[in-house]
């Protein structure tokens, strides 16, 4: 800090605390609501402190799901979300590493064309091509399957771009040294490039895991069978029901379960994730 102005420091902390309160307040209320009986949330104003029904509420939704909101239990939906998020994250990293390697380390005809085809995906988010993409997946018989949930979301220009940027910073001499050591392209990729990219891989993993977990529209389209529902899309049904029945305690418990895994991933891998996020866009 350039100068010492005590009131400015106080003001800063005050603003930051307001920001933190803004961020945490909805989460806190959701948590509180998830620990009360359904009846406590119907009459008047909801309480601000946790109740004693936490274990009971969470056990109910995890095993039995929510009454009146379809049969899938939150446990099943969590598992589906996990499978989908992991497939997307791992799949994206795998194909992006390969294609970034090809684009950076080889000279071949149509290289730039391939590059631009991959980059065109940036301009075609799933939201703008909803119907035709749905039709393709339906024609391929991939509705109500984990493949249908994850594969169409795997192509990622962002991850390819980040790996490309990273590969470009790897000193040429390393590739030359590997060549002198007799390593062919695949050997170089496996022994040198991938191990060197570990931090980037971890950072992209966090970003893509959250991207996959938080998908909403896509699972909404491709799943009609409730055993394939993901938690983030499942919550919408609960809210619709919660408004007509006094079931807010279950809806909020589900919301907490839906946001807990990605939040933990972000918090645990915070440093890697922040580095990766800010660098992706540079």
């Amino acid at each position: 800090m350039v100068e010492n102005r005590p009131w400015l420091t106080v003001l800063q902390h005050f603003v930051l605390l307001c920001g933190v309160a803004l961020v945490l307040f909805p989460l806190w209320i959701a948590f509180v609501a998830s620990t009360h009986e359904g009846r406590a949330l119907v009459a008047g104003v909801i309480p601000l402190l946790p109740g004693d029904q936490m274990v009971e509420n969470y056990r109910t939704i995890l095993t039995a799901g929510m009454q009146g909101a379809g049969g899938a239990s939150v446990g099943t939906m969590l598992l589906n979300s996990l499978i989908m998020a992991l497939s997307i994250a791992v799949g994206k990293i795998a194909i992006s590493l390969l294609s970034a390697f090809a684009v950076v380390y080889f000279r071949f005809p149509f290289r730039m064309l391939c590059f631009w085809i991959i980059f065109s995906t940036l301009m075609l988010p799933v939201e703008v091509r909803i119907l035709p993409t749905f039709e393709v997946v339906a024609n391929l018989g991939m509705l109500n399957s984990y493949a249908g949930l994850s594969i169409p979301l795997i192509a990622s220009a962002t991850a390819t771009f980040l790996f490309r940027q990273f590969f470009l910073t790897v000193p040429d001499e390393l590739a030359e040294a590997a060549r002198m050591d007799g390593a062919g392209p695949f050997r170089f990729f496996k022994d040198i490039l991938v191990p060197l990219s570990r931090t980037n891989i971890a950072a992209i993993f966090v970003i893509m895991f959250i991207y996959g977990w938080n998908q909403y529209l896509w699972p909404l389209l491709v799943t009609t069978d409730e055993s394939f529902y993901t938690i983030v899309m499942g919550i919408q049904r609960m809210v619709t029901v919660a408004d007509s029945y006094p079931r807010w305690h279950h809806a909020m418990a589900t919301a907490v379960m839906a946001l807990l895994p990605p939040t933990l991933v972000v918090l645990i891998m915070q440093r890697l994730f922040v580095k990766g996020l800010v660098e992706t866009e540079k």
């Binding site: 001499e173 030359e176 040294a177 590997a178 022994d191 191990p195």
Partner: peptide
């Protein structure tokens, strides 16, 4: 290069960092 029976020392050493 590997078939030329040579070895090279690079300016920045090019050691494999991992």
């Amino acid at each position: 290069p590997k078939d030329r029976n040579i070895a090279m020392v690079f300016q920045n050493y090019a050691l494999y960092p991992h």
